[in-house]
């Protein structure tokens, strides 16, 4: 299988602070990779590198077989339409209501008629379990969890092949987290979606991830199936997956 994301030798610096020192990561088509790591370990920064919002100090990032920053504006734009991003803070357009936020990327395509856009937005809203009347609220009038779900609906608007999610279940109640897990599973089955998600939620991780990448000490400390990662002997990994907690999550995921 061909890799959907290829990060090789990535170095990220902010001033004199080095966040990633020669980081490698490959994600195959159809995988769900969970990115875990301590707060401030550079998970969000890695996602920003993958979607081309930051330029690496050195190293290379390829998405769907193409460099994210190719320098050719048309190619860059076409590539960006093939992946969906959910930002940690939602990043909804504050001047547009929920409906327009989700419709925005669809309208940008410029070939869908109004009724079709409306249908698609309503389906996306239902997918993330929001009600039709929520479509007319402004972002400032949403609860924290609703912001997350609207942002997810917007990330899904263009039927992406690759979905990058920064803490999608933070701020969701357990029921909604479970529904989110179900949604991602279904989409993966129907559309062959590849997903990279940052999460601290062991339940989501146990239920969804085909592989887990642990970020620490400016590189990937461990990368493999959950069992493989849990077997590693590293202080952070031992702390993060405090074994009893993890076993409970696994048991819940299996039931």
């Amino acid at each position: 299988m061909k890799p959907v994301i290829e990060v090789s030798g990535l170095v990220t610096r902010f001033g004199r602070q080095t966040i990633h020192a020669g980081l490698d990561l490959a994600v195959l088509a159809g995988e769900v990779v969970a990115l875990v790591g301590g707060s401030g370990s550079g998970k969000t920064t890695l996602l920003r590198q993958i979607v081309g919002l930051l330029r690496p100090a050195s190293g290379e990032v390829k998405v769907l077989g193409q460099p994210v920053l190719s320098g050719d504006p048309l190619a860059d734009r076409a590539l960006r339409r093939r992946f969906g991003v959910l930002f940690q803070q939602g990043a909804l357009f504050s001047a547009l209501n929920v409906f327009e936020n989700i419709a925005f990327p669809l309208r940008e395509l410029r070939w869908l008629d109004r009724d079709t856009v409306r249908d698609l937005v309503m389906v996306k809203l239902a997918m993330v379990e929001l009600e039709a009347q929520h479509a007319w609220l402004m972002p400032a009038e949403l609860s924290g969890g609703m912001v997350k779900r609207v942002a997810l609906a917007r990330a899904l608007a263009l039927e992406p092949e690759l979905l990058l999610l920064d803490e999608p279940t933070a701020g969701l109640d357990p029921d909604r987290s479970a529904a989110f897990v179900e949604l991602i599973r279904r989409l993966r089955q129907q559309l062959g979606l590849t997903v990279v998600l940052v999460t601290h939620d062991l339940d989501t991780l146990a239920a969804l991830a085909t592989r887990v990448a642990v970020l620490g000490e400016r590189r990937i400390l461990a990368y493999g199936t959950l069992e493989h990662v849990m077997a590693q002997d590293h202080p952070f990994i031992r702390g993060f997956f405090a074994l009893d907690r993890m076993e409970r999550a696994l048991a819940r995921a299996r039931s």
């Binding site: 869908l112 079709t116 249908d119 698609l120 389906v123 996306k124 997918m127 039927e159 129907q190 559309l191 062959g192």
Partner: peptide, 13 residues
């Protein structure tokens, strides 16, 4: 081969 929300909603209509 593949069906997404757009295809499905067009057929549904």
């Amino acid at each position: 081969q593949r069906l997404d929300t757009l295809g499905a909603s067009v057929l549904w209509r």
